[in-house]
């Protein structure tokens, strides 16, 4: 039996640290002991496969029961590939977000902004054979949080991806270009490497924009790669 090809180690500085003092909620929730490195085994090299039969796609968040949500309609499109440049095909992409007023349809969100009965904020799409995904939603609003005085989260859409191996699990947030709150946001700035941070900012794309209908934003995602095809031990 051949050993699975190991995933590339993560590039230093391109991922946030668990212990990020500027983000207060990390204080009691980060491990203090050193993490133990496990080599890539079948456990990490394999991962769940989600069939659209059991996990139906929900690609248009902007309409609920035929009624349009309030806010600026947008198209979000991108490509999921791995660090070796290979497309990640047929993989599930989960998204969730606040409404246009900056309020989540969630009992824990007590922000004094209106709920929208026509916007829930959950989406799920699958990439095609070239790793492309696309969904339609409304642009989420900014909202206050209590991390520091007058703290506001920049507009963002949450993303969850699985890839083909459990070690590729990715939970991230997509931001919007030109948002003045980004420079003030400790979650965004938890990523030390500037280029890695800026890759979380989607790009406005007039070619993706549909006239008279919706603005287009492009957001490409890279999952961990694992180098060459595994060698067969014979």
């Amino acid at each position: 039996m051949s050993d699975p090809a190991p995933f590339h180690p993560l590039t230093p500085g391109t991922q946030p640290e668990y212990d990020t003092p500027s983000y207060g909620s990390t204080a009691k929730r980060h491990p203090q002991a050193a993490l133990i490195a496990v080599p890539t085994t079948l456990t990490e090299a394999n991962g769940p496969r989600f069939s659209p039969l059991h996990f139906p796609a929900l690609a248009d968040l902007s309409v609920t029961a035929g009624r349009p949500a309030l806010g600026e309609r947008i198209i979000v499109e991108g490509r999921v590939s791995d660090e070796d440049g290979r497309p990640v095909a047929n993989t599930m992409v989960e998204i969730w977000q606040a409404n246009a007023a900056g309020r989540y349809d969630h009992p824990g969100d007590q922000h004094d902004a209106p709920l929208d009965p026509n916007f829930h904020g959950e989406g799920r799409v699958f990439t095609d054979a070239e790793g492309r995904y696309r969904f339609v939603t409304i642009k989420p609003g900014a909202y206050p949080w209590r991390n520091h005085p007058n703290a506001w989260r920049p507009n963002h859409i949450h993303f969850s991806l699985f890839g083909s191996g459990f070690a590729q699990r990715l939970i991230t947030q997509m931001y919007f270009p030109g948002d003045p709150l980004l420079e003030l946001d400790p979650i965004y700035h938890a990523i030390a490497d500037r280029a890695a941070r800026e890759r979380l900012i989607s790009r406005f794309d007039v070619a993706l924009t549909q006239p008279e209908w919706a603005l287009g934003y492009r957001f490409d995602i890279v999952l961990r790669g694992r180098g060459a095809t595994p060698m067969e031990n014979t």
Partner: peptide
């Protein structure tokens, strides 16, 4: 190819996908 996309917290409202 750039490095893998950075993670960000799942936040307190992830139950929208629960």
């Amino acid at each position: 190819m750039p490095a893998a996309t950075a993670n960000q917290t799942i936040g307190p409202y992830w139950h929208l996908i629960e």
